[in-house]
Design a protein around this nucleic acid. Structure first.
Length: 473
RNA sequence: CGGGGAUUGGCGCAAUUGGCUAGCGUGCAGCGUUCGGGACGCUGAGGUUGCUGGUUCGAAUCCAGUAUCCCCGACCA
């Protein structure tokens, strides 16, 4: 039995996660409370998420821009619900250049207000709509309790902010963003998420409607993995932002905003990782293939280099040909780093014109001929990607329970947890009581959830839909 | 912000009721032997025990204060 250098996922998810994030060099605790350092290997993940999403964002005609990190306090106050929602977690700058500021500046928790103030300046006519912008930036929310990637005081995200002449166009954009998130999780991160609409209590401060993608974590808690908000005309009216429509009448633009953050990386780590460390789906993996020649095998070493040169332009590939670590050490190291495919080459293989392919997700080994290498790699990359997605999908489905009695609801939430599909009367008080008794909240009304006559799991009043409940991260 | 735990070489830990020169593992540096699932030997560097004050002949150990981190809650992407 190999000595373990990280804690076991099967024993303590939290400890395993913290330990792994640091040991795999994804991130580290910083001297600043609640803030982490994202190290190159972790940042490479974020860069891949960025480039994946950015392509679609631009295709949609949304342009990248950059707005200030500071927001005048008065801006935030213009939208009542908005400021109330964020007030407890704001970082406020009161001094600048050694002098007290006449108006306090808020370190942005989100940029709706400062962006709309500028949009207002830039638009006078219906012809100036839509406005479609996005920014990649950092935001600060003063969390009481932090957790690497999943909840830190400062985090990175993209925030898209668009404004349209009609609520139909606006809604189309909101749905597009939600689809983008779904695609990002599914195709890139191999994470199965449930999309749907938030209850009033759970929606974004100031939004008309909030759409979300929720992913189930191994401990049965849900991660809000991305949100897309239909802001309606709330902010436009608060900011007195209007343009002239075709008839010369006032038109308050319909707005939306949508964000996906570095939190997604936390989900990625937690969902796919195992007792040996990280497991990255090939699409997101910073290194897809590592080639490990057995140290001091001359023939193998030469072959490894040839293969590396041959395939490095087609895959994100690394050659680990140092001789100061043993083969076993290297195998464990790269497994902890989550590299999807490892190519092992010893003189034995070299003599037979073959190599050993090891897939990280199942740790299965196969010996293949060098002539078939790229064909096999291509297939394996596809297989690993789909296997991981399928595994998470199955896990989510196996841990989604359709429940009709509150006793059963409570029992599940106090034991295995998971998603619970249950009728709810859509009354906020009822929702609050359920939360009090079970720690679970509504995550969303899932897309495509059919209408169905039933009674609220808590109060027994009539209900038309089953909502999705879970304890949340 | 409430409850719990912690802080000792880079990392992980130990040091009995206060008592010898604060140890061990790992990591690091050098040399040599190894090398197919975290190899081994020898040598060496690295500490005013989180910080401040107090008690004492004597403090890593006791007391008071303070800071930071982790875990569990409430709050949240």
């Amino acid at each position: 039995m190999a000595k373990k250098f990280i804690k076991l996922k099967s024993e303590d998810l939290s400890e395993w996660y913290n330990d792994l994030v640091v040991k795999a060099e994804l991130a580290d605790y910083s001297p600043v409370k609640g803030c982490m350092v994202i190290r190159p290997y972790g940042y490479a993940i974020w860069e891949r998420i960025q480039s994946f999403m950015d392509k679609f964002i631009k295709e949609k005609g949304v342009q990248n821009a950059y707005f200030p990190i500071f927001i005048p306090e008065s801006f935030l106050k213009k939208e009542k619900e908005h400021v109330e929602g964020f007030a407890p977690e704001l970082a406020v700058v009161t001094m600048g250049g050694g002098q007290e500021l006449t108006e306090k500046l808020i370190v942005r928790p989100t940029s709706e207000t400062i962006m709309y103030e500028m949009y207002k300046k830039w638009t006078q006519s219906w012809r100036d709509l839509p406005v479609k912008m996005n920014q990649w930036c950092n935001v600060v929310r003063w969390e009481q309790r932090t957790y690497l990637f999943l909840r830190t005081t400062e985090f990175l995200w993209q925030e898209g902010h668009c404004a349209h002449a009609t609520s139909e166009e606006n809604n189309e954009m909101v749905q597009w963003a939600l689809d983008l998130y779904k695609k990002t999780y599914t195709d890139l991160l191999a994470i199965y998420g449930v999309t749907g609409v938030k209850s009033d209590a759970e929606k974004f401060a100031g939004a008309g409607k909030t759409y979300t993608i929720e992913a189930l974590m191994p401990n049965g808690k849900a991660l809000q993995a991305g949100t897309s908000h239909d802001l309606g005309q709330n902010f436009a009216k608060s900011f007195d932002w209007f343009v002239s429509d075709k008839n010369g009448e006032k038109l308050y633009p319909y707005q939306n905003s949508w964000g996906l953050s570095t939190r997604s990386i936390g989900g990625l780590i937690m969902i796919h990782g195992d007792d040996n460390g990280l497991v990255f789906p090939p699409q997101i993996a910073p290194i897809q293939i590592v080639i490990v020649p057995i140290p001091n095998h001359q023939k193998a070493s030469k072959l490894a280099e040839d293969i590396f040169i041959k395939i490095k332009s087609n895959y994100r590939c690394q050659l680990d040909d140092t001789v100061d670590e043993s083969a076993g050490f290297k195998f464990n190291k790269w497994e902890m780093k989550g590299v999807p495919i490892r190519i092992e080459i010893g003189d034995k293989e070299a003599d037979l014109d073959s190599v050993i392919l090891v897939r990280r997700d199942t740790l299965e080994k196969q010996t293949i001929k060098i002539a078939d290498l790229e064909k096999n790699i291509d297939q394996l990359l596809i297989d690993i990607q789909s296997n991981l997605l399928e595994k998470h999908k199955k896990f989510t489905q196996n841990n989604t329970f359709s429940v009709d009695s509150f006793d059963e609801f409570k029992k599940i939430m106090s034991t295995t947890r998971g998603f619970i599909s249950a009728h709810w009367c859509e009354n906020a008080e009822c929702e609050a009581k359920i939360k009090e008794e079970t720690k679970a909240t509504t995550r969303c009304l899932p897309d495509g959830q059919p209408e169905e006559d039933g009674v609220c799991i808590h109060c027994g009043k009539p209900s038309k839909h089953r909502w999705l409940f879970a304890q949340s991260y």
